[in-house]
Design a protein around this nucleic acid. Structure first.
Lengths: 252, 252
DNA sequence: AGCACACCTTGACGCATATCAAGGATAGAA
DNA sequence: TTCTATCCTTGATATGCGTCAAGGTGTGCT
């Protein structure tokens, strides 16, 4: 079986290797998102050495589960992941969606146990970054230490954004915000900011935003009627960005 | 003017100094919460040297404001603080309450700007920990580096708890959870787990939990009627812990 | 002590979103 | 292709919490 990743193709020409999903950090297309480091090139090589690239995950396969011993954080290389917790009464709470270049698993550091589960929303490849190696390397490379402090801090500010969204905003505003967030993250990866395919189901969206499926569906219908979005199942086209921003109630 | 802190009294007998609010980390009563480090005593001394202890904040005084340049994180030494963000449309979102031994300000690391404001809920003393010094020290002391990774990770998991609470739980469950959280944090500080004075207003509670003042007030009345709490303005007495846990919908 | 202002409580009512229900669309399997 | 399971949409109804309104309580200032 040949595994072929969209991002890996060009590298293979230059640098063939046993598995064609092998890439290295130095020429990974995503390193500006994943590691916006002021790293010297031999620093990157050191980092590259500790990172493990494993076989892609199939859709709905778990990367780790809540309660697993924490060993590594992970960078998404292709595809998309969701993180979720199971509440005491057995329901699920989606805590985040992760796209290529984004890091997940940092919530496991505090107790050495993963505080949430991570599951592939579609076929996905990840880079595994063993945390003890990362810690050691961080003491040697101040810029790497700083970068990880920043990454974790960003996770905190993003969670606080979501808290505000859940606490203060209407269903329309929540869905609009998520669409804008995905749009922004896409454009950081040099993909279309106005047209994309949602990797997650309506249930996941609702779960993440504290809404029911029905409400999410109705919001999409409403936005379509207002010519703000064109929704065709999971295909989204943003027709009116500023209208969407107005709906999301954010300063552009 | 003489400033006197509850925690500082006994230290002054042993180690008088210019300001009687001066304490050091080595004999601070809170160091088991603030720094549960496997630090050697001379490590603690090094940490102690970078920490600045300033004059207490008066009620409603700001420690920092959203958008301020980020220089330090802060440990609460006495009193209580709240952190909040101002939304694009000018409303306030309380993102956390901080009690003695707890650390705030870590959301400023990612952009070198504070992502939220911090305000004293009552007269409060804080320890200022300059971040660049902390970073330098962390490269030299792996256990300190690890500790800060853990602290930030804990902030992430706590935010995720709040996300779940806001997304899935009723008004009763939210208020019950907050009461249990304060109770737990009190007992970590060797204070009563069943009787305490809330430092924050009903507005702040509602704001934090995504509820209106009126709803918070009604929940308190309801819990009082059920003999779960005794509420006398800001004085809270928990009469039925397991009843409260049941209301909060958490596994005890 | 007396006043003023902020904070808290309670009630009546309305609305946004959940819930319940049913049918349609889509995608993977045989 | 056809079957089947999952996902999505839409409508009708219910409800928890917000909103509006009014009055009470506590606290700090003069």
């Amino acid at each position: 079986m040949t595994i072929r990743l969209a991002d890996a193709g060009e590298q293979n020409v230059l640098k063939p290797c046993i598995h064609d999903y092998q890439v290295n950090c130095g020429n990974c297309r995503l390193n500006s998102i994943c590691l916006p480091l002021a790293l010297e090139s031999d620093d990157i090589e050191q980092l590259d050495e500790i990172i493990q690239r494993s076989k892609p995950l199939q859709k709905s396969q778990h990367l780790y589960r809540e309660g697993d011993v924490f060993k590594s954080v992970y960078a998404v290389r292709s595809g998309a992941m969701k993180a979720y917790k199971t509440t005491d009464d057995g329901r699920e709470q989606v805590t985040g969606f992760y796209f290529p270049g984004e890091i997940l698993g940092m919530d496991g550091i505090s107790n050495n146990l993963h505080a949430s589960s991570a599951k592939a929303l579609e076929t996905a490849a990840v880079c595994e970054i063993p945390f003890t190696s990362l810690e050691k390397l961080s003491t040697l490379m101040p810029s790497l230490q700083r970068h990880f402090f920043q990454l974790m801090s960003r996770e905190i500010t993003e969670d606080q954004q979501l808290i505000t969204l859940l606490s203060k905003n209407s269903a329309d505003e929540r869905v609009a915000s998520l669409m804008l967030s995905i749009s922004t993250r896409n454009s950081k990866r040099k993909l279309s900011a106005t047209q994309f395919r949602l990797p997650m189901s309506r249930v996941d969206i609702g779960n993440y935003l504290g809404l029911t499926v029905e409400t999410v569906s109705r919001v999409f219908s409403r936005m379509q009627k207002l010519d703000i979005l064109r929704v065709d199942n999971k295909e989204i086209k943003i027709l009116d960005v500023s209208g969407l921003q107005k709906l999301a109630n954010v300063a552009s």
